[in-house]
Amino acid sequence: MKVAVIGDPDFTLGFRLVGIRDVYEVGNDEELVEAVRNVLDRKDVGVVVIKYEDLRKLPPVLRREIDERVEPTFVAVGGVGAVEELRDKIRRALGVDLWK
């Protein structure tokens, strides 16, 4: 299984340095959606790295699909948004804020 990266050229360059070849460089939102769809169709990608801001831009239908899939798993990096989202989920599911 491989790692794929989706994002703008500045973001992906670092991952290119590690040797990742499955890099989707996107300039605008349409390209972003297209890239995510492409990745979802691929069988050899296990983890997708994406910026949190980019993940937020995706349409809700696509986000739900991402949440439901086990392969590939999306990892959002950058900012505290991903952690906040998880924290919100904990609050909703358990009724207490365990993330401190």
Partner: peptide
């Protein structure tokens, strides 16, 4: 970046 060959796999 282009010279890197081995991709991280798991």
């Amino acid at each position: 970046a282009l010279s890197r060959q081995c991709e991280p796999t798991f």
